[in-house]
Design a protein around this nucleic acid. Structure first.
Length: 210
DNA sequence: CTCCCGATAT
DNA sequence: ATATCAGGAG
């Protein structure tokens, strides 16, 4: 099967399986999504949502994040792991957004990339889910694992994987594709023990193990 | 490449 | 005990 036919089959199946796939991180505005996404590195979205529920009641504006005490903030986000890096990055990003962008998260991929703790995955996530602008494909741990298993890429580097996916996917699918893959990665194609026997993609997956 | 790092499932 | 979770920086 040609790769283009394959991606269309995968898209069709995923849409049927996960018709309401969406960003699982809870947020009410762009800066909340930015912070939740930084916190989500190597941490479940469920845990991030537990932390941000309290966090976003304590810190309302970008200024609140920019002016908080580092050690206090580390405690506020402690259970998400990597808390020292994440605290430094979130406060650093908030200071830049406050000073340079007048407290509003820039609606610009390259400007997002300049913020500490923000690389392509986070910038694509914010552009897509906060602003509904498709700047690329979010390549996270699930997307890396599952697109490789499905034979959609042979690359290991997230940026190259993203380039491969951009070529394969219609632009209007860029944002939703990651949501559906992540849903699939959490429910079926689980890293430790993939449930290939009940996976709807098992007929077209080269890595199926039954 | 290594380091950052707590919580959870297996 | 160990792998894994919506990664990024040095």
């Amino acid at each position: 099967m040609k790769l283009k036919e394959k991606i269309n089959e995968i898209l069709k199946s995923l849409k049927k399986l996960y018709p309401d796939a969406h960003c699982a991180l809870n947020f009410k505005n762009p800066h909340e999504l930015l912070i939740a996404t930084i916190l989500s590195a190597q941490c479940t979205d469920e845990r991030v949502n537990m932390v941000t529920e309290k966090l976003f009641k304590k810190y309302k504006t970008i200024k609140d994040f920019a002016n908080t005490d580092l050690l206090e903030f580390e405690k506020d986000i402690y259970s998400t792991g990597f808390y020292r890096n994440k605290a430094k990055n979130i406060i650093g990003a908030a200071k830049i957004i406050d000073k340079k962008y007048n407290g509003k998260v820039p609606k610009d991929f390259d400007q997002l990339l300049e913020l500490p703790g923000v690389a392509r995955k986070t910038a694509n996530c914010v552009m897509g889910n906060a602003f509904n602008i498709a700047t690329g494909v979010v390549v996270d741990t699930h997307v890396i694992r599952i697109t490789e298993k499905l034979g959609l890429t042979k690359n290991k580097d997230p940026k190259k994987i993203e380039e491969d996916l951009i070529k394969l996917l219609p632009k209007e699918e860029w944002i939703n594709f990651s949501h559906m893959i992540i849903w699939h990665g959490r429910k079926i194609c689980i890293a430790r023990r993939p449930k290939c026997e009940i996976c709807k993609l098992n007929r077209i997956c080269p890595s199926v193990a039954i």
